[in-house]
Design a protein around this nucleic acid. Sequence first.
DNA 1: TCCATTTGTCTATTTATCTAGACAACTCGA
DNA 2: TCGAGTTGTCTAGATAAATAGACAAATGGA
Lengths: 253, 253
Amino acid sequence: MDMLPQGGIDRGSGVALWRQIADRLRQAIVDGEFGEEGAMPGEMALSARFAVNRHTVRAALAGLVEEGLIETVQGRGTRVRSIKRYTFPISRRTRFSEGLAGQFRDRQVTVIEETTVPASERIAAELRLAPGHPLLRLVLVSRVDGLPLSNSTNYFDAKRLGQMGAQVRETGSITRAYAALGIADYVRRSTEITARLADERERALLELKPGAVVMEARAVNDTPDGVPLQFAITAFAADRVTLSLGAPLEEPA
Amino acid sequence: MDMLPQGGIDRGSGVALWRQIADRLRQAIVDGEFGEEGAMPGEMALSARFAVNRHTVRAALAGLVEEGLIETVQGRGTRVRSIKRYTFPISRRTRFSEGLAGQFRDRQVTVIEETTVPASERIAAELRLAPGHPLLRLVLVSRVDGLPLSNSTNYFDAKRLGQMGAQVRETGSITRAYAALGIADYVRRSTEITARLADERERALLELKPGAVVMEARAVNDTPDGVPLQFAITAFAADRVTLSLGAPLEEPA
DNA sequence: TCCATTTGTCTATTTATCTAGACAACTCGA
DNA sequence: TCGAGTTGTCTAGATAAATAGACAAATGGA
């Protein structure tokens, strides 16, 4: 448990001690610090390590039990429940399902909201449309094996791609929805990544606790000859997803 | 202030109400919600909006004043201080200074630690060395215009690149340190990105408050003909940096 | 200058968190 | 079976956070 230094819990920060300990333990769990067995130090050991009362440690562990991350058994101790982290490659040819291929058995894309909105200056510029142009706005949640990984808000030219909502519902995939509308191929023009605390809606959709971190990716997809198709803002649950850039970056010759 | 819905502050989450409000306001500030003037709603309005007592709002604002993000003037109200966000492009040819070119006037790389460590299994594999091979480990902090943007831990083959520490200190740049050691060019093999709360050391080095979010990039650099040079783990302050993938991704022909 | 609006400061009470101590109940290896 | 080690539960007190109310002080527009 190298990442858990002696003490180091901040008082007066506005984050309860139990919460800070829970956050630290969660990070250690996500980082695989407790090995294959997942056996964690006992309450008294954690109490000594964090220099807090045992009850404070108990509160932290109770939080993690409630999150489903650990299980505690009286007399035996505390163990990490099996957790799964997914690596999502980002490239010019980013595809959700193909990107995660081999990492799951079942995948599901749910349309949460479908509305038509006027294009803001920013989105209009990205999609090379006039501000105010009607856009189809699709809010999606993507799950693998029942676990929500991302929540995205997607914008399409409503005049050209107004059927994307219906097609995503029918096919369960943006790639297949495009194909159904006659768009055989698309490529990622750009992606901007930042990170922050998840907001209320993201927490609800991704089943996250307050204080959870998301990586936000803002991306634009074009046809291979450069016609704008989609502007998307995607929040990935940072505890569950790693974004990977590497060898697949290079476009097939 | 669209991103600040009515109410929505969680009780019992282990994060104080004032802290949640401060986090929300900080995010709104970072997202540019308060416009060019930076004028924010008054305490009474925020109190109503978040459905908390005015003093709780005052505690939140005090936190942001202490961070230097805002200034409050009795009788006049609260304004955002000018903040700066940097966009850092990631490509095969990632270079810290060139990547941020045009976004700052002054840049500084500080060597925080220089040690020799045996290669772990993971790093040995990335650098194609034997586990236990001696590695030069350099901990760096990079600042622009005095603002710390990233904290990185870099690993080099100590036998081939043992002088990197001295050269980084002398030249203020990894690229120039490589050049001084006869390595004229290098490319990014892969990058993996995730995000989490900053740990204690990161907070100290990047001047962040408890609960701040960092984006962690794990990257490997090679020579153009594929000889491994460097394994680096970099924590970027998520409030200050956006990682950008896009047009510059394509390698010059 | 006046006054509406805003932040600043003080006192007081209630609620939440942290600490402390003690004992019960369970697990599992010797 | 015994006992060391572990988690579970209870009572109690101290400290921190949240709420409430009131009034002072400053700003800036009419």
